[in-house]
Computed example of a mutant assay.
Amino acid sequence: MAFIKIQNVVINTNYVAAVKLDNQTSLGEKSVSVLIATPKLPLSNLDTTTHNFYHYEWIEFTGQAATALQDYFTSVNNVIDLLPQYQESSVR
């Protein structure tokens, strides 16, 4: 388990479900979005009919926070890149 602190937000990396790199806000500002999946616990044992066991929330970061997250999630020390950028343009 690892934690990432970005400005005033601390993220447990166990709950990161997806990351959107190279996004833009509606104003055209560079952003990085992180999808957080936190487990939902049933209120009782009878409440197991629901198949949605997680609560999902997108958190969007801009400015320096977006740059720092992009650096973190593109680092070979943190994430394995299955299709390096050099091959990405040839895959269509």
Rank of each mutant, 00 (worst) to 15 (best):
2 A>H: 07
3 F>Y: 13
4 I>F: 07
6 I>T: 02
9 V>K: 08
11 I>G: 01
12 N>G: 06
13 T>D: 04
15 Y>W: 14
15 Y>M: 05
17 A>K: 09
18 A>V: 01
18 A>R: 06
19 V>L: 05
20 K>R: 15
21 L>A: 08
21 L>N: 08
22 D>P: 05
24 Q>E: 09
24 Q>I: 03
26 S>H: 10
26 S>W: 03
27 L>M: 10
28 G>D: 11
29 E>V: 10
29 E>H: 12
32 V>W: 11
33 S>D: 00
37 A>C: 08
43 L>Q: 02
45 N>I: 07
45 N>T: 11
45 N>C: 04
46 L>H: 07
47 D>W: 09
47 D>T: 08
48 T>R: 15
49 T>H: 14
50 T>Q: 09
50 T>A: 11
51 H>V: 06
52 N>K: 10
53 F>K: 15
55 H>S: 11
57 E>Q: 12
57 E>S: 02
59 I>W: 06
61 F>S: 09
64 Q>D: 14
64 Q>Y: 07
65 A>N: 04
66 A>W: 04
66 A>L: 04
68 A>P: 05
68 A>I: 10
69 L>Y: 01
70 Q>Y: 11
70 Q>S: 11
72 Y>C: 01
73 F>S: 00
74 T>D: 13
75 S>D: 09
77 N>S: 15
77 N>E: 12
77 N>M: 05
78 N>V: 04
78 N>T: 11
79 V>E: 05
79 V>F: 02
79 V>C: 03
80 I>G: 12
81 D>E: 11
82 L>M: 09
84 P>D: 03
84 P>R: 05
85 Q>Y: 12
86 Y>D: 13
87 Q>H: 09
88 E>D: 05
89 S>V: 15
90 S>W: 09
90 S>M: 13
91 V>D: 11
92 R>F: 10
